[in-house]
């Protein structure tokens, strides 16, 4: 129980991600059917996404889209910055140094508490990863169709046997 409290509960997401990853990996390696392998691949990729998204979670935070009431107060600041035109760069410079020195000063300036919003970066990265995942899936499915056309089977052992035999349709 102590172990649960110390190592499992605070890291529950991470544990599950490892479990999913193992499931996926195992399927990718040992499954005989190509489509099953791909299912395993999907699970595997999702596990990674789960890991990333879990990194970005902050307790008590909300989604990384600025809320409406920020909008009003903030828009003016933005306009002011925009109007200053060429000074823009210097100003952000200034902000940046502020940022480094004292985070609370920023909060006062902008009224945005970074802890209030979930970390957006993993979300961005994982959008990309999902896209990559579905593209890979598509290509893999196309390849499996092509294999089926040549071998009439999607079972790995049957395909290997056919290759070994060098039957019709198999060019050695």
């Amino acid at each position: 129980m102590e172990f649960l409290n110390a190592s499992v509960i605070p890291y529950f997401n991470y544990w599950i991600y490892v479990v999913l990853m193992m499931i996926g990996l195992h399927a990718m390696i040992t499954k005989n059917n190509l489509i099953k392998k791909l299912i395993g691949m999907s699970i595997f990729q999702t596990a990674i996404i789960l890991f990333y998204v879990s990194i970005g979670v902050k307790t008590g935070s909300t989604i990384p889209i600025l809320e409406h009431h920020h909008d009003e107060g903030h828009a003016e600041t933005a306009h002011a910055v925009a109007e200053s035109g060429d000074h823009h760069a210097e100003e952000t410079d200034h902000e940046k140094s502020d940022h480094g020195n004292n985070e609370h000063a920023i909060e006062a300036d902008h009224g945005i508490d970074p802890d209030h919003f979930a970390n957006p970066l993993p979300h961005v990265l994982m959008l990309t990863a999902i896209v990559v995942g579905v593209s890979t899936l598509g290509v893999a499915l196309a390849i499996s169709q092509s294999i089926y056309k040549d071998f009439g089977s999607l079972e790995e052992n049957e395909i290997l046997a056919k290759i070994k035999q060098g039957g019709p349709g198999v060019d050695v």
């Binding site: 990718m28 691949m41 890979t136 290509v139 893999a140 390849i143 092509s146 040549d150 349709g169 060019d171």
Partner: peptide
Amino acid sequence: VAMGSKSRGTVAAFNYLIMGTV
């Protein structure tokens, strides 16, 4: 790799894909 006309190439491409994804 999979574009080729050889059927073994397609199988190889699938393996390549799985390993590459891992």
